[in-house]
Design a protein around this nucleic acid. Sequence first.
DNA 1: ACATTGACCTGAGAGC
DNA 2: TGCTCTCAGGTCAATG
Length: 262
Amino acid sequence: MPELPDVEVLRSYLDKKGLHQPVHQVEVFAEEVLEGISAREVHSQVTGRSFSSTARHGKYLFAELNGNGWVVFHFGMTGQLHWLQPGTRTPDHTRVLFIFSNRQSLAFVLRRKLGRFGIIPDITGFVATKGLGPDALSKELDLHTLQQRLKKTSGTIKGALTNQGLIAGIGNIYSDEILFQARIHPKNRANKLDREAMRLIFRKIGEVLQTAIDREADPAHMPATYLLPHRQKGGVCPVCGTKLKQLRISGRATFYCSNCQQ
DNA sequence: ACATTGACCTGAGAGC
DNA sequence: TGCTCTCAGGTCAATG
């Protein structure tokens, strides 16, 4: 699930439902998912504090601890946040559980343990340490920046779009969607694209990601001309009806329409 | 120095 | 039904 639009939906959810409520207790069920911090430190730094604001960079979600740093969530391939009413059973694969003073709780759920949880002093430093590029939906990523970065990339455009060091937030699903909407073949070399193609990709990055957020990142609610709901074996292009082609780029399953995307 | 591959985890679904 | 195999929207270290 968790590429930029999914994480943005979770952020907005946390922002609406999870702020300004003191954490009465925090439980760590899987210490392996903690990054750069022990369960003991999580307890001491979170208990008694509340989340005062939220932020996001690429696929990372941040919640501020009343000016005492930020908790960081990374969702891996299967991560979710579940808001639980008092008395509700804790979901399977809950790795970290926040119990608030009002008895509600927030479960950080990872089926596979590919996600991470941590606490950091500031976001800018974290983004620099991770080597993340500008967030795909931020003002930081303007057309000029994108063109500069693509020109320096010799690999495929699909590989470039999913490279978090170039642009943060786009993953396997939405890179396929962006390239489909731009009618560009995923195997094109990033640095060989002309200015017009780069301009088109820039426009589609914003358009596709924002559309997905507006529709709560739910594949069932995407526009009829979107690839996403058809992105499976035997799937058919929603525009021309051609059977979709599948190949592997940078180790990731890639779907495209050989008729629409030259 | 770059781009690509394999390892890390676990469960779902396909094929037998 | 049950077993085995492959694959899945993530990143990072190792490899070419």
